[in-house]
């Protein structure tokens, strides 16, 4: 039971330099990996590849030794760095959440999502409020792996601690694997069981 990147290569266009070259990574269920590297080293690209949003030019992404499923809700869910770019601006937030399945009241409560927010549009909420929707959406989908791309940098530290505590608790309960991209060394030490630096 593992999510694997096997010798993957990726570049944005034939004339562009390689962003990822011969990158290999394996994460088991129940494991929590923190990924760090200077900006521009391909952390977000790696996150997009692992969640199936991009296809590697060479190499493969395997989930339990099979390619990621092409249909249905992907068992590897990505939470983006910029929540305002990850929700449909013309959908009310209730619809945004329901896209991943049935609303779970316990998750809404754990993230402090006011019921009144469900009828609002994304632009009427702050970045931190929107990010809680994005994390809740990923958790409600029943994913086995969560890829968290700098999910808490736009949150105040109390909300950051709250969200991570909920995510870690849920991950423990469901034996999920977590890959967290973060620049914050202190945060990585708190949440991860293993850390890697892409630049090394």
């Amino acid at each position: 039971m593992a999510l694997e990147a096997k010798n993957i290569y990726f570049r944005y266009g034939r004339k562009q330099p390689w962003i990822l070259e011969d990158c290999t990574l394996k994460i088991d269920r129940g494991e929590r990996l923190a990924v760090s590297a200077p900006s521009g080293y391909g952390k977000t690209t790696l996150a997009l590849l692992l969640a199936g949003y991009l296809k590697p030019e060479k190499g493969e992404i395997l989930l339990d030794d099979k390619p990621l499923p092409a249909k249905g809700i992907c068992p590897v869910q990505l939470i983006y760095q910029h929540p305002e770019k990850a929700v449909n601006p013309r959908w009310r937030l209730k619809r945004v959440l329901e896209e991943s399945g049935k609303l779970r009241e316990d998750v809404l409560d754990a993230f402090g999502i006011e019921r009144a927010w469900l009828d609002r549009f994304p632009r009427e909420l702050s970045g931190g409020e929107l990010q809680r929707f994005c994390v809740a959406r990923a958790l409600m989908s029943g994913a086995d792996y969560l890829i968290c791309d700098e999910i808490s940098t736009m949150l105040d530290v109390i909300t950051q601690a709250q969200i991570w505590n909920v995510v870690l608790e849920e991950a423990d309960k469901r034996n999920m694997g977590i890959i967290a991209v973060t620049h914050n060394k202190h945060l990585a030490e708190r949440i991860a069981t293993r850390m890697i630096d892409l630049s090394e």
Binding site: A116, V157, I158, A161
Partner: peptide, 23 residues
């Protein structure tokens, strides 16, 4: 004080409850 204590290097302690909604 709660903000200080919630920093990952200072305990990572969340506070119960949430900021009240503007309405």
């Amino acid at each position: 004080q709660a903000l200080w204590r919630a920093l990952p290097q200072n305990g990572f302690q969340p506070v119960c409850g949430f900021q009240p909604y503007a309405g």
